[in-house]
């Protein structure tokens, strides 16, 4: 899996490319922006071609740690295949999901402002 990280509007955007399963999720968790609970992150999932319960679990886990620190994790550009895995497990209820990274970053920045 290829993980790239950029910053827009003071928000880290982490873009995943490839497969998020039990083999690759340690790599995902080890990403500094994802692993740091004090950082709000937008996760771009457009190029994730497959995700299973391990991948889902690591996203949920990262979000939990961030929310304990008043930060958050937003999801963007989910393709249908990924969306269905979230839906089967009802995990979509836990997230704000955007179809556009830019809009997600704006929303994240606004929420961060409101928190301060």
């Amino acid at each position: 899996m290829i993980i790239t990280e950029t910053t827009q509007n003071g928000i880290s955007v982490v873009t995943l490319n490839g497969t998020l399963d039990a083999l690759s999720c340690p790599e995902f968790r080890a990403n500094p922006a994802v692993g740091d609970p004090g950082q709000t992150v937008v996760l771009d999932l457009e190029k994730v071609d497959f995700i299973d319960s391990s991948g889902l679990g690591s996203i949920v886990g990262a979000a939990r740690k961030k929310r304990q620190q008043e930060c958050d994790l937003f999801l963007a550009c989910m393709n249908d295949k990924v969306r269905k895995v979230f839906e089967i497990t009802n995990a979509q209820k836990l997230f704000h999901i955007f179809d556009d990274t830019g809009a997600a970053v704006e929303f994240a920045a606004m929420q961060q402002e409101a928190c301060k």
Partner: peptide, 9 residues
Amino acid sequence: IESYPEGGY
């Protein structure tokens, strides 16, 4: 799901 479990899915 409300308790954000990491596994069991």
